[in-house]
Design a protein around this nucleic acid. Structure first.
Lengths: 325, 325
DNA sequence: GTCGCCAATGCAAGCGCTTTTATTTTGATT
DNA sequence: AATCAAAATAAAAGCGCTTGCATTGGCGAC
């Protein structure tokens, strides 16, 4: 209809500046007239790019990932890149499957949560030359590009705060540590702080449990049923902490008068609870956006593509109080 | 390596039963050996299918969509279909863009939230022959396949309950109704119930606001600053209700003693609040799964592909109490 | 006016797969 | 052993696009 070859149409669509204004407008008119959309498969085949990046997250049901993804997606969209999301449900096996599935779909980049992962998987990624970014965790000397924060240091700071307020009988409800370096780091951080005061987390005051409300509730009930009971419960995330508050309430106790509780992540939930949660603020949205930028740089082979570490902040609200207050 | 043609490899991958066991195992060995994955673009081009469906949701930050998507994705994955998610941020314009973007990516199905949408968009969808399913809302005689529930009836039942408990000064914090039929239906439902008792929602006791915690808080503060103040606030969703509880607390009032509050959706949040929210339970996960099944049926041109309506249930918790109690 | 040069466009060769059609192999039957 | 049908496999033609290279045409310099 525009009287030009397909090559010119292709150029109008992909590199409009290489086509004269006159021809371009003719082609654009034809495109509009037929409501033409390029065939994705043809495009992908010929150019060997899909303009798609994949992300594998544990679950969408936790607000932190939802937020991070939202930001990631928005930042990618600015560069015309689509995000495909898969979930692993915190199962390393399933995560590997999902990564392979995404590779099979021709993603030209991947965003993965955390670092703990079968080396063979990293090998596959490198061999295929698919750029990837690890998010949510960060440690010095991590060999891969990552955008995250120091989970261990943040947890340590929180535990230190609890100790500073006079607490000595401290328990922890952690996430499942298998295949989850963030959960591991948070436990380690708490252990660090306790160890510095000659205390330790033994198995009666550390429970590992899935990141669910009722799991947190059950764990707290169990921790609080020993005598003497802990005066503070440090939780691996805000959802577990919310569960702990439920348990405390249902046992006829009160937070923070009888038991202090701390969370991790600072999702909206933390703010609406009563008492509001003292927790660790994590800049999820900013991390998502930073991950997008880093991935786009890696894809473009830019050399300023380096890992980014974010700071966390302790947010003091009502759920943590000095001992004996 | 397996000494066969590419045609046979293709068959091993797509219709293994059409290949003899001996050849198949040779091919599979070669596939495993080279860690071969078919090229997505080639596949899409030749077969004209992508095994991808798209979903456009308002936001991932609301747990209801996150949950629904999770279920949707899991159900689709069972049939080897990948889900691509885009967000519109409750903006009809942006939703249209995202739908077109997904079509451009060659999705072979779409999941859309609600029914309110430019007719031209529906036309495009039909013309392209891309099957789609509307979720989250449902009404009798909806001309398109949908999987949802009757928002209006559910809201009406909730308002009726509030009335039954003696409340007469009833206010509502609704979601933004522009381009959001669920928000509209929920307001209409409340109006229905009030009208049946000769009451109405005028502009001083109806505020429309984005589905955010602080928006809910501000709206509630405004509603409660008139004299005489409402004795019950019906909210368009649980997040708004959580915000309302924050406002009540910060104004030195108490729920439900001074003001009752109701929510909608029954997300986890509703349960952990203090007082826990009286709300409308919506089976988000089941809807997501049902949407997946319906879409797969439509795609396969099965004739038993019909809309599904779910029942909602009123969940009575502490935030709603009889007037004067 | 002629020549070069560059910008604009066309030509045509794939990209890696699926699928129809043709061919070969297999194995049962005579 | 010969025959034939059925099953298994190979051959080859695209699918719709991108892109390197060839061609064209317009314009300034001589």
């Amino acid at each position: 209809m525009a009287g030009v070859s397909t090559a010119t149409v292709s150029r109008v669509l992909n590199e409009p500046e290489r086509v004269s204004a006159k021809t371009r407008s003719r082609v654009e008119a034809a495109v509009a007239h037929f409501d033409y959309t390029p065939h994705f498969g043809g495009r992908a085949l010929a150019s060997n790019r899909t303009n798609t990046v994949g992300a594998v997250i544990p679950t969408m049901e936790n607000a932190i990932f939802a937020r991070g993804l939202q930001a990631l997606q928005e930042a990618l969209a600015e560069d015309g890149v689509t995000l495909v999301v898969a979930t692993s449900n915190y199962d390393p096996e399933r995560e590997a499957q999902q990564i392979r599935a995404l590779l099979g779909r021709g993603v030209d980049g991947l965003v993965l949560i955390g670092e703990a992962r079968d080396p063979a998987l990293y090998e596959t990624l490198e061999r295929r030359g698919v750029p990837f970014v690890l998010v949510w965790s960060w440690r010095r000397d991590c060999p891969w590009p990552c955008v995250g924060f120091d989970n261990r240091a943040a947890a340590r700071a929180m535990a230190q705060k609890v100790l500073d307020l006079g607490h000595r009988r401290i328990a922890m409800i952690a996430g499942v540590t298998h295949g989850n370096d963030r959960a591991v780091a948070r436990v380690d951080g708490v252990r660090d702080a306790l160890a510095a005061r000659g205390l330790r987390l033994d198995e009666t005051n550390l429970i590992e449990t899935p990141y669910h409300l009722d799991a947190g509730e059950n764990a707290a009930r169990q921790l609080l049923s020993v005598t003497p009971r802990p005066t503070a419960i440090v939780c691996g995330n805000d959802v577990l902490a919310a569960g702990a508050l439920l348990a405390i309430r249902s046992m006829g106790l009160s937070a923070p008068a009888d038991v202090s509780v701390t969370g991790f992540d600072d999702i909206d939930l933390a703010y609406v609870l009563d008492p509001p949660l003292t927790t660790v603020h994590v800049p999820h949205r900013r991390m998502g956006a930073a991950a997008a930028r880093l991935l786009l740089r890696l894809r473009a082979q830019e050399d300023n593509a380096t890992s980014v570490v974010f700071e966390t902040a302790l947010v003091e609200r009502g759920s943590l109080a000095p001992l004996g207050k």
